[in-house]
């Protein structure tokens, strides 16, 4: 009996101590982690899409409710007008591929795309992120039709040897386009507030 009580007490104390320590560390790092994500994952992708924006898209962002989720929307003031960036994911060869898509709010065409997170094979699928020529193909495409690779009847040339990844990127782009169409009234309204 004594032994049993000791086991329970030791485990409980140990777990409580561990829980407390972790909660403290999590509270202290949460803000930094959020900033790190913005700088390292979203930041470079957004800068790539909004090269030459007159504002700081990382600062000019707002959230839009989409069903149960909240979507981050980044606003860019470009030469040709205003554009927004949203992120979505497509199923790749090594898990989800995150893609940021910039959409011009006036012409409703794609301004540019950039891959954020992925676990694709280096030298193969990973080229979707590294090869600017692949991302450049999305520029100017209308968001009316689904965006697809040529093999599926679309206009995007897949990266050779990485069809699955290419498809993941086009699927993510299509899903951002749909998200934009779904949330359009709210996005348009909020974007109006941003001016040079």
């Amino acid at each position: 009996m004594r032994e049993m009580i000791k086991m329970v007490v030791v485990l409980t104390v140990l777990s409580a101590f561990s829980g407390g320590l972790l909660a403290a560390i999590k509270n202290n790092t949460a803000e930094r982690i959020e900033n790190q994500k913005l700088t390292f994952v979203k930041g470079p992708a957004i800068k790539q899409i909004f090269a030459g924006a007159a504002n700081d898209p990382l600062a000019d962002r707002f959230k839009v409710a989409d069903g149960n989720e909240e979507r981050d929307v980044f606003v860019g003031l470009l030469d040709g007008g205003k554009a927004v960036i949203m992120e979505s994911f497509g199923k790749g060869y090594g898990g989800d591929v995150g893609v940021m898509v910039g959409i011009d709010t006036a012409s409703e065409t794609i301004v540019g795309i950039a891959v954020t997170t992925h676990a694709e094979t280096p030298g193969m699928g990973a080229r979707a992120k590294e090869d600017p020529a692949f991302a450049a193909q999305f520029k100017g495409k209308s968001i009316e039709k689904p965006i697809q690779v040529t093999g599926d009847g679309g206009e995007i040339n897949a990266i050779s040897g990485a069809t699955v990844t290419s498809r993941a990127v086009t699927n993510a782009a299509t899903s951002v386009a749909e998200m934009y169409k779904r949330l359009k009234p709210e996005i348009q309204e909020k974007v109006q507030a941003f001016n040079k």
Partner: peptide, 10 residues
């Protein structure tokens, strides 16, 4: 894991 996320995110 937390420290790595906060300081060496890449």
């Amino acid at each position: 894991e937390l420290v790595m996320q906060a300081y060496t995110y890449p």
